[in-house]
Simulated scan of single mutants.
Amino acid sequence: MQKKRTAILISGRGSNMSSLIKAAQAPDFPAEISLVVSNRPDAAGLTVAKAAGVRTMVLNHREFADRIAFDASLDAHLRIESIDIVCLAGFMRLLTPWLVERWRNRMINVHPSLLPSFPGLDTHGRALEAGVRFHGCTVHFVRPEMDSGPIILQSAVPVQLDDTPDSLAARVLRQEHIIYPSALNLLAAGRLTVEDERVAIEGARMSAEVMVAPRV
Rank of each mutant, 00 (worst) to 15 (best):
P165A: 05
S167L: 11
S113F: 03
P158D: 06
A127Q: 11
T164G: 10
G149D: 07
H135K: 08
D162P: 01
R102I: 03
G125C: 08
P116N: 05
W98E: 15
G131Q: 10
E176S: 07
I83A: 04
R143P: 00
L74Y: 00
D122H: 15
H124I: 01
S155D: 09
S155Q: 14
R171E: 03
R171D: 04
S113R: 02
M92V: 12
V172P: 03
Q154F: 04
L121E: 11
A127N: 10
H140F: 05
L115H: 02
V86Q: 00
I151H: 00
H124L: 05
H140V: 13
A69D: 14
L94T: 14
P116S: 07
R143H: 10
G125Q: 09
R102V: 03
A130W: 08
S113I: 05
M107Y: 07
V132G: 10
L88W: 05
D163P: 09
T96S: 15
S148G: 15
M92F: 12
I80T: 14
F70V: 07
A170L: 12
G136P: 03
P119N: 09
V172I: 13
I108K: 00
R126V: 03
P165K: 00
V139Q: 01
L115M: 11
I151F: 05
F91H: 09
D71E: 10
I108Y: 04
H177Y: 07
A76Q: 14
I108S: 02
S155Y: 03
V139P: 04
Q160S: 13
R104W: 09
L88N: 09
L94N: 11
A76P: 02
I152H: 02
V132R: 11
G90W: 06
V142H: 01
S82Q: 15
V157E: 09
R126W: 04
G149Q: 02
